[in-house]
Computed example of a mutant assay.
Amino acid sequence: METNWHPLNAELWTASSASDPFKLIDAFFNLEHLDRYKHTLSEIMFFMYTKQIYRPDNPGTVLITYAALRSFLNASCQLQHFKPVTGSPAQLVPGQNSLLTLSSLSRDEFRQPFGVFKSAFRIQSLASYEVFLFEAVYLALSPHTGPSIPDMTTPYIWLLKKLDAAQLIRERHGNSAGPLNPAGEQLKSRY
């Protein structure tokens, strides 16, 4: 099966480019914490429906978040093609050690976080998620209200799920000090 690999465009928000989705996720969560991304997305969704402009004192920070989330969407599109090795830490059940015990993921999604990406892209295409993100940020930064695309809730919920799944993968398999930073070949065979 041939896969389409989309450029990650990490150089727009970080000092280096990334071609490996795992390395991008590491850089993504080094830029902001999971809770911060979720909070920002919630605020963007709120400001879409008001005439108030989101962060009028410094709207440029929203563009950095937008660029990082767009790169994340491209990386998550690649992650749908990865599967954890049987018996790997991805088979764990929710526990007290996880940051995501009370997350947006179901029990099955918690056990198999790579499946979240596959399910998300069965529901909507990468282009649909990018349109959602662009429209949400555009409306939050402008005095106009209400989206032109009819369903903004579904991509929002799936974006939250993808964020949780990516954090869970990172939590289970390491971060910048751990196994996500070896060469791409080692990473791909690990999962």
Rank of each mutant, 00 (worst) to 15 (best):
L100R: 07
L99R: 12
W13M: 09
E2L: 10
D26M: 05
L187W: 14
S142L: 05
T14P: 00
L92F: 14
W13H: 07
G178A: 07
I53T: 15
D35L: 13
H33G: 13
L139C: 06
Q112D: 15
F28V: 06
V116L: 04
L92R: 15
L163S: 04
V131Y: 11
F132Y: 12
I123P: 01
W158C: 03
K23E: 12
N181V: 12
I157C: 13
L102W: 12
G115H: 02
F117P: 02
R122H: 15
S42R: 14
P21N: 08
D57Y: 09
M1G: 11
V85A: 12
T86I: 15
G174F: 06
M45W: 01
D151M: 03
T145N: 03
M152Y: 06
E135C: 04
V137G: 01
R172D: 11
T101M: 13
V131M: 10
L139Y: 10
A166C: 06
N30D: 09
G95I: 00
H144V: 07
F132M: 03
L34G: 02
R111Q: 12
S176V: 00
R170K: 11
T101P: 04
T61I: 11
N4L: 10
L133I: 02
N97G: 06
S42P: 03
I53V: 15
F47Y: 15
L102P: 00
A18G: 00
H144A: 06
S125D: 09
T145M: 12
I25P: 04
L79Q: 04
L168C: 05
F110C: 05
K188Y: 11
V137M: 03
